[in-house]
C-alpha cells in the first residue's frame, strides 16, 4: 500500500510517496528525505529532540504520522538559517553556550522558535523555563538555553519594534 502526500518542507514543495502508512514525520525526514538535523531521542514524544514546526506550531515529529500531514508546511532546523545567515535564536544558542553535545539542540532551537512565535511567555524566565520543559537536555545545558531564548526573544522583539 502506498500513499501520496504533498508537504512543504522548509519552503520546498515535495510530493512524497509513502510506501508504508506507519512512517512518522520524523522517520520521513531522517530516513527518506535525509534531513537528519531533526533527532530521534525517544520516539515516544517524551524528549522533544524531534521538535519541528508544522503550520507554525511546534510538534514532536515522532508522534505525527506523515500520512496525516497532507498539505502541511513543515519547518525543520535545516530551514532556519537563510543564505548561511543564522537565525537570531541560533546565534543566541552559540553565544550563550546553550548546548554541549548538540543532540537535543535542533529540538531546543525549534521549540524556542515556536515559543517565541506563540508569544505567551514574555520575558519571565520561569515561564520560558516552563515553555521549554518539553525539551530534555542530558548534558545540563539548561542555564545557557534559557539565557539564549530570553536574549533571542528580546532581540526579535526589538527588531519588530524597529520595523513597526
Amino acid at each position: 500500500m502506498s500513499l501520496s502526500v504533498t508537504l512543504t518542507i522548509n519552503g520546498d514543495r515535495k510530493d512524497v510517496v509513502l510506501e508504508d502508512p506507519r512512517v512518522t514525520l520524523l522517520d520521513l525526514l531522517r530516513e527518506r528525505l535525509h534531513l537528519t538535523g531533526t533527532k530521534k531521542g525517544c520516539d515516544r514524544g517524551q524528549c522533544g529532540a524531534c521538535t519541528v514546526l508544522v503550520d507554525g506550531r511546534r510538534i514532536n515529529a515522532c508522534l505525527a504520522l506523515a500520512a496525516s500531514l497532507d498539505g502541511a508546511e513543515v519547518m525543520t532546523i535545516e530551514g532556519l538559517a537563510v543564505g548561511g545567515r543564522l537565525a537570531t535564536v541560533q546565534s543566541a544558542f552559540i553565544e550563550h553556550d546553550g548546548f554541549q553535545c548538540g543532540f537535543c539542540t535542533p529540538g531546543q532551537i525549534m521549540s524556542a522558535v515556536g515559543l517565541i512565535l506563540e508569544g505567551d511567555a514574555g520575558d519571565d524566565p520561569d515561564r520560558v523555563r516552563e515553555g521549554m520543559s518539553g525539551n530534555l537536555c542530558r548534558c545540563g545545558a539548561h542555564a545557557g538555553i534559557i539565557e539564549a531564548v530570553l536574549d533571542a526573544q528580546k532581540r526579535v522583539a526589538g527588531e519588530e519594534g524597529k520595523a513597526a
Binding site: R30, L35, T36, G37, T38, K39, K40, T76, I77, E78, L80, A81, L86, Q90, S91, F93, I94, E95, D97, F99, G102, F103, T105, P106, I109
Partner: peptide
C-alpha cells in the same frame, strides 16, 4: 564560543545515525 557551534545549531553536525 564552540568551534562546532555553527554545525550544531544548523543541524549539520553529523551524529552516527545521521
Amino acid at each position: 564560543t564552540r568551534r562546532d557551534g555553527f554545525l550544531k545549531v544548523t543541524g549539520a553536525a553529523t551524529f552516527a545515525a545521521d
